[in-house]
């Protein structure tokens, strides 16, 4: 498998106050880092999952990858070209090869546009007028398991699961190489969740598309993903093959996430590791290891010295002084 997407030392910043205010207050920077020094690779036909709690910066990272947010430093290489340096024209070509599934299935569909028009919207945007839109709409709906009569429905007439399928259909319109899926199961019932994940898995097998999935739901991760990264305060704390992470997590945060999972049966449940407090503010990042304020295993060293990534081989790494 060859490399499709390669992100190197990516940093995304948000302005929190004006330059004037920060100069007057003599604080160093008017910016906060929502994503800090993140590097990862996604191979062709692979599913890469990013797990994190709210405020971890996972959606920011996704938005930066699809070119919605400007990056402060670092690079996003897609098939060898750096997206952050692309001129507008080349960026259009990039956007034909990626697509996104949004967190809010109904909200990501234009409310006054019928489903048939919505899913063929990419053809209109990229001036592909030679395609028969009716025919294409039918083909795409069929691909995601919806009947052709959904063409003239409006978004508010769809159930959550149906709207989600329509979102998948639109994402597939231009045969993208990469689909970025932000919380693909958010707001769905358990019985429908499976349908959507099976659909994504099937499409990947049939079309060979790569998936970049962002989620906070660890339970779905192990069934869909090849590689997983855990994000905390805008950094990756652990990254590796999904199966290994689930069996033997090295970072205490990953361990805590995996154990904080109320299950019906206690079979295979981990001993719960309770985390203290809540995620700190990005304005006041903790010193040393940024997780030490909540870590149940923190030692003196953790409060002062930032750990470096440890490579466990097989493309598996964790950033911790005392990995499990």
């Amino acid at each position: 498998m060859s490399q499709l997407l390669e992100v190197n030392n990516l940093r995304v910043q948000f302005r929190v106050k004006s330059s004037m205010a920060s100069w007057l207050q003599k604080s160093e920077s008017p910016f906060i880092d929502a994503v800090r020094d993140v590097s990862f690779k996604i191979k062709e036909g692979e599913t890469f999952t990013l797990v994190g709690e709210s405020g971890s910066g996972k959606s920011t990272l996704a938005n930066a990858v699809v070119g919605l947010l400007p990056t402060a430093s670092g690079s996003i290489n897609f098939m060898g070209d750096d997206v952050t340096q692309m001129p507008d024209k080349q960026l259009m070509a990039y956007r034909k090869q990626i697509s996104m599934m949004w967190q809010n299935p109904t909200g990501s569909l234009s409310p006054r546009m019928q489903v048939g028009d919505a899913i063929t919207e990419p053809y209109k945007i990229h001036n592909l007028s030679d395609r028969d839109k009716q025919q294409e709409a039918k083909r795409l709906l069929n691909l995601v398991g919806l009947s052709a009569r959904f063409q003239d429905r409006y978004p508010h007439q769809l159930s959550g699961g149906q709207a989600r399928r329509v979102g998948v259909a639109r994402a597939l319109a231009l045969n993208p190489k990469l689909i970025v899926a932000d919380e693909p199961t958010a707001g769905l019932d358990v019985s429908v969740q499976g349908e959507i994940l099976n659909l994504l898995n099937r499409l990947q097998d049939d079309l060979g598309v790569s998936l970049f999935v962002i989620t906070h739901n660890l339970n779905i991760v192990r069934h869909i993903s090849d590689r997983t990264a855990i994000m905390y305060l805008g950094r990756f704390v652990e990254e590796g093959p999904t199966d290994d992470i689930f069996v033997n997590p090295h970072h205490p945060y990953t361990l805590a996430l995996l154990s904080a999972n109320p299950e019906v049966t206690n079979v295979g449940a981990l001993e719960r590791i309770a985390l203290k407090g809540e995620v700190p503010s990005l304005m006041h990042r903790p010193s040393g290891c940024e997780f030490h304020t909540r870590c149940p295993f923190a030692q003196e060293l953790c409060a002062t010295v930032a750990p470096v990534g440890i490579d466990f081989g097989f493309e598996y790494s964790a950033t911790c002084h005392y990995p499990r």
């Binding site: 358990v190 969740q193 339970n219 109320p262 019906v264 295979g268």
Partner: peptide
């Protein structure tokens, strides 16, 4: 259907 109760990795979840 509860994905948490499916310990074994599967590409085809029950629905």
């Amino acid at each position: 259907c509860d994905p948490a109760s499916i310990a074994k990795k599967t590409r085809n979840l029950p629905t």
